Amino acid sequence: MSSQAAAQSPGIRPAAQRPAPQDTPAQTAAANAAADAVSPVAAADARRASWVLAAASGQRVRRILLGLLLPVTGLVAIELSVRGGLIPANMLPAPSQILETLRDLGAQGLLGHIVASTLRVFAGFVAGALLAVLLGAAVGLSRHAEAILDPTFQALRAIPSLAWVPLLLLWLGIDEAPKIVLIAIGAFFPVYMGVASGIRGADRKLIEVARLYQLSNIALTRRVLLPAALPAILTGLRNGLSLAWMFMVAAELIAASKGLGYLLSDGRETSRADIVLAAIALLAILGKISDSLMAAIEKRSLAWRDSYA
Rank of each mutant, 00 (worst) to 15 (best):
W245Y: 07
A278N: 06
F247I: 13
A210T: 05
V76F: 11
L253E: 01
P19W: 13
L80R: 15
R13L: 05
F125M: 07
L241P: 00
P231Y: 08
P21M: 06
W171D: 06
A42Y: 09
V276A: 11
A55P: 00
L162W: 05
V276L: 10
A202I: 04
A43L: 14
I275H: 04
R157V: 09
I233E: 08
V82R: 14
L282P: 02
A46W: 06
I180W: 08
G124D: 03
S242N: 00
F125H: 03
R120F: 14
L172H: 02
S242Y: 00
V191E: 09
V61T: 11
A255I: 12
A210I: 07
T152K: 10
D45N: 11
T101P: 06
V82Q: 10
A127R: 07
A127I: 13
P151K: 05
A127G: 09
K258I: 14
A34F: 04
L102E: 01
L162K: 05
A20H: 09
A20L: 07
G136D: 01
I199L: 06
V121E: 02
P14V: 08
I275R: 12
A158G: 12
A244Q: 01
S271K: 03
L206G: 06
D150H: 14
P40H: 09
R48W: 14
W171P: 02
V38D: 04
V38A: 09
A202E: 01
L66H: 02
S292T: 13
S9I: 13
F189C: 12
F188M: 08
F122P: 07
L282A: 07
V115A: 15
T28H: 03
D274L: 12
G109I: 07
I233C: 10
R103N: 00
S271A: 04
I185P: 05
A184H: 14
T28C: 08
A303G: 08
G11R: 15
S265C: 00
A219R: 10
P93F: 15
Y308T: 00
A251M: 09
L230M: 10
L226R: 13
P25W: 06
I275E: 01
Q27S: 00
A127F: 13
L66G: 02
Q154C: 05
G58T: 05
A228M: 03
V38E: 02
S265F: 03
I297T: 01
E176D: 14
L69Q: 08
L99M: 12
V115Y: 15
R83N: 07
R204D: 00
A44P: 10
A184R: 15
V224C: 07
I87H: 11
I12W: 15
R157E: 03
A163I: 07
A219G: 02
L110C: 06
I78Y: 09
D291S: 12
I180F: 09
A37M: 06
I148M: 11
L135K: 06
L172Y: 02
A16H: 11
I218A: 11
Y192A: 07
R60Y: 00
L293W: 11
P95A: 04
S81P: 09
V276R: 12
P88W: 01
G287R: 13
P21S: 09
A132R: 14
G173V: 03
D23S: 02
G140H: 10
I207Q: 01
E79K: 15
L226F: 09
G74K: 13
I280K: 15
L260E: 08
H144P: 01
